[in-house]
Design a protein around this nucleic acid. Structure first.
Length: 603
DNA sequence: CGATTGATTGTTGTT
DNA sequence: AACAACAATCAATCG
């Protein structure tokens, strides 16, 4: 009863809060953004202005990016470390808040923004990188061109400072080989970052030595920036990356100053070719936006043989090469990628952050060089990941195949036609409870577990949110779709749910319990098309939800907090549904992480 | 050969 | 016809 009261209390609180919830959340968000954004104190904004403008407004004009917050913050630190020049360099931005007229700022902003974005949605550690990128932004352009040779000496020390990333740096011997890592990429940060601690200090150390020279060259930098954002952003890393392999590249200082836009990544190419002409041919490519379009008429013109675009013009329809047979069952577990691919995936974000305009080829080269220079230990780390992923993959594959077999027996309808990509329901649900394959073992959704690396990092904690009370024996594995070999992580919840709700349905064993995260997923997984009646009888009642899928969908949304009250209301609408079920959903909805749920429900 | 990502283009489906 | 959504292709590199 106490619990019951407690629940009611929470419920009431929630009701109240819900009304204000929106605004509150927004406010929080803004506030958070503020925090991140404010750092640029140098700005002459008055406090009053702050108040009036509000957090959002302020950042934008100042830096042109709203979401940069994190990156910005990091940058600030770094910048501080770097040298006064940075301040100067940035100073201009605020004054030219929106005047995109000056390419310099926009460019920098762009790449920063990109960096941030990329970082944000992909890799947590990337934040650190983003910070680094700033440094790159400032320094890189200058260093390589001005005194490539000199650079070498500085790097080692800087590298050492970079110690954050021992392996790379550790290869002091190799350091010369991959200076870029040290400077811009801070590859080390990536793996390290994953682990958690972003490394920023190294930057300061890195560049500080050069700082003086750099400041002197500041004007040049600005020019370069103005001339071409891409150049500034990308140039350094790429050159650095290529530098090792193509030392000659470094020697091209002259071009840098003049630098035409084509340079961007081309530095590498141009360097290799050592002739400016090449840029012309490929120069088109560098311009990210319109490059391809140019081809329209100039198919023939486009010298670069690499692009096969010309083909289309050639033939009315170039018989699409039978190349891709890709179509697989979406549910089939995805094959683990190679260590290199993994590395690529992780690294490219950073590279992109620093060189937003870098082409895929350039990025590939950089990644390759980085990979090449990567310490054995680091490689091992990736390989290890791959190994584990492989193991998981095998497990999942086995489960998947088993499921296929079982499904074929149970219900053909359930099996989605390879048709692909996505019936929204399937895909969404799948994405909801799928995660990095390696993380969870037992999950084999009966019908749809497409391994999606969607929110990999977040899930791990969620997968097993609930303690496993020892009373798993509650229900024997269900017949049918269940995958006997895979122990359901949270059978009890499931079983209880069913028991509570309909009191009769058989819980589905093989479902992926992503914890409360996706009730929809759970439900869906748990409800075979026909055989098992959905936990809530109301499905039919709720506005003609004939297919279990729909209902599941809704539930899933609720569980995700998409809609709070509605979920409850809907559930409550089903009179047959016991209160416990309601609370179950409520908790799912409210605190996805509440581990007590099972207990509560049980009570 | 397939995988990495992002951009572009082409095709198909819907309104 | 316009638009949206999806599929395919390409780049360099590695396993």
């Amino acid at each position: 009863m106490v619990i019951f009261i407690f629940i009611l209390f929470n419920f009431l609180l929630k009701e109240e809060s819900n009304q204000k919830n929106r605004t509150a959340e927004e406010a929080d968000v803004y506030r958070a953004m503020d925090v991140t954004v404010y750092p640029p104190p140098p700005q002459p904004l008055t406090a009053s202005e702050h108040g009036r403008l509000g957090q959002l407004s302020y950042p934008e004009p100042a830096f042109g990016t709203k979401l940069e917050g994190d990156a910005m913050f990091l940058n600030m630190q770094e910048t501080g470390l770097d040298y006064g020049a940075n301040d100067q360099f940035r100073a201009p931005q605020p004054p030219q808040p929106l005047s995109k007229a000056t390419p310099s700022n926009p460019s920098s902003q762009h790449w920063r923004r990109d960096a941030h974005i990329a970082d944000t949605h992909r890799l947590p550690w990337s934040y650190s990188v983003a910070g680094l990128s700033d440094e790159d932004f400032n320094i890189p352009p200058i260093t390589p061109p001005t005194a490539p040779e000199h650079m070498l000496p500085p790097h080692p020390p800087h590298d050492s400072s970079g110690g954050a990333y021992p392996p790379l740096d550790g290869d002091s011997g190799s350091a010369p080989h991959h200076p870029y890592r040290l400077q811009g990429m801070n590859l080390t940060a990536m793996p390290a970052g994953q682990d958690g601690a972003p490394v920023l200090n190294q930057d300061g150390g890195t560049f500080s030595p050069d700082g003086a020279a750099m400041t002197s060259t500041l004007s040049v930098m600005q020019q370069m920036v103005n001339s071409d954002s891409r150049f500034t952003g990308s140039q350094q890393p790429i050159e650095a990356a290529l530098g090792p392999k193509n030392p000659a590249a470094i020697n091209q200082p002259g071009q840098l100053s003049t630098i035409n836009q084509s340079q961007l990544g081309l530095a590498a190419k141009s360097v290799t070719h050592n002739s400016p002409s090449p840029p012309a041919s490929k120069s088109a490519t560098p311009s990210p936006s319109s490059s391809t379009h140019e081809d329209d008429n100039d198919d023939g013109f486009r010298g670069n043989g690499g692009e096969k675009r010309p083909a289309p013009f050639d033939i009315s329809k170039k018989a699409k090469t039978p190349k891709k047979k890709k179509r697989k069952d979406p549910n089939e577990p995805v094959k683990p990628v190679s260590a290199y691919a993994l590395f690529f995936r992780d690294t490219q974000a950073n590279i992109k952050a620093q060189n937003p305009n870098a082409t895929f080829g350039e990025v590939s080269k950089i990644v390759a060089s980085m990979w090449d220079g990567l310490g054995e230990e680091q490689k091992q780390v990736y390989k290890k990941k791959t190994e584990t992923a492989k193991k998981e993959y095998l497990k999942q594959l086995a489960a998947y195949r088993a499921s296929l077999v079982s499904q074929s027996y149970n219900d053909p309808c359930e099996m989605k036609p390879p048709h692909s990509t996505s019936s929204p329901s399937s895909s969404s649900s799948a994405s909801m409870f799928t995660s990095k394959p390696s993380v969870y073992a037992g999950q084999q959704p009966s019908s749809g577990s497409l391994a999606h690396p969607l929110h990999p990092q977040q899930h791990p904690g969620i997968y097993m949110p609930y303690p496993h009370p020892s009373n798993l024996s509650h229900h024997p594995p269900s017949p049918g779709l269940g995958h006997p070999h895979l122990a359901p992580p949270h059978p009890q919840i499931h079983a209880q749910l069913h028991a509570l709700s309909s009191g009769g349905t058989v819980p589905r064993p093989g479902l992926p319990h992503q914890g409360a995260l996706s009730l929809g997923g759970v439900v869906q997984a748990s409800t075979p098309p026909h055989r098992v009646s959905p936990p809530l009888h109301g499905q039919a009642h709720l506005g003609g939800l004939h297919s279990p899928h729909r209902q599941h969908h809704q539930l899933g949304a609720h569980s995700l907090g998409m809609a709070h009250s509605p979920a409850i209301t809907q559930v409550s609408r089903c009179r047959s549904t016991p209160l416990k079920v309601v609370f179950f959903f409520f908790f799912l909805n409210r605190g996805l992480t509440t581990p007590r749920l099972p207990q509560l429900v049980r009570q």
